[in-house]
């Protein structure tokens, strides 16, 4: 009995570790895109912690990353501070970004911002974005097109 339990735990550990290694970047990036770097990272860690605690259920899902993305978004709402897209400028070691980008991204819808940032900031494919956001590829395309149009308009691109 004890031997089976240990073996079962080992299988679970291996499965979770494999999932975590493969999905950590995109889940973190997706929540960063939605909620901003600090809140998004915390939300991603919360989501993985949730997955770990509920692996028997999460591990059997067809699209666990999409589910955990929603778990992370839900968790971010409990942080008692509004999600921000870009944190205030900090140390000089951070890469410089266009000042108008913050307000531009903030004015996009969550889905537009998430799709745009995942595609153009982190380089994910439409299929990968579709999976994490739980929407079809054409919808991803629509969000990206609309988001970029709004961003260009706001940043006064000719």
């Amino acid at each position: 009995m004890e031997g089976r339990l240990v073996a079962s735990r080992e299988q679970t550990r291996v499965a979770f570790t494999e999932f975590f290694s493969g999905s950590e970047p995109i889940l973190r990036h997706a929540l960063v895109a939605t909620c901003g770097p600090e809140v998004g990272r915390e939300a991603a860690a919360d989501a993985f912690e949730y997955a770990w605690s509920h692996w028997d259920r999460v591990g059997s899902m067809e699209h666990p990353i999409g589910y955990l993305y929603r778990v992370g978004r839900s968790a971010a709402r409990n942080y008692r501070r509004p999600a921000v897209v870009v944190d205030p400028p900090g140390e000089s070691s951070l890469p410089w970004i266009e000042p108008g980008l913050e307000s531009g991204l903030r004015r996009l819808s969550d889905r537009q911002r998430t799709a745009v940032v995942l595609r153009h900031s982190f380089g994910y494919t439409y299929a990968e974005i579709s999976q994490v956001m739980g929407v079809s590829i054409p919808t991803v395309q629509k969000h990206i097109e609309r988001g970029l149009t709004k961003l260009r308009r706001r940043l006064e691109v000719a």
Binding site: R41, V116, H120, S121, L155, E156
Partner: peptide, 23 residues
């Protein structure tokens, strides 16, 4: 002012990764 939006978004990715390091 001319702003290359896609280039700015790439920089934003670097900026975000500098803050939100891998878990």
């Amino acid at each position: 002012m001319i702003v290359d939006v896609t280039r700015e978004l790439e920089r934003y990715g670097e900026y975000a990764d500098a803050i939100a390091s891998p878990i």
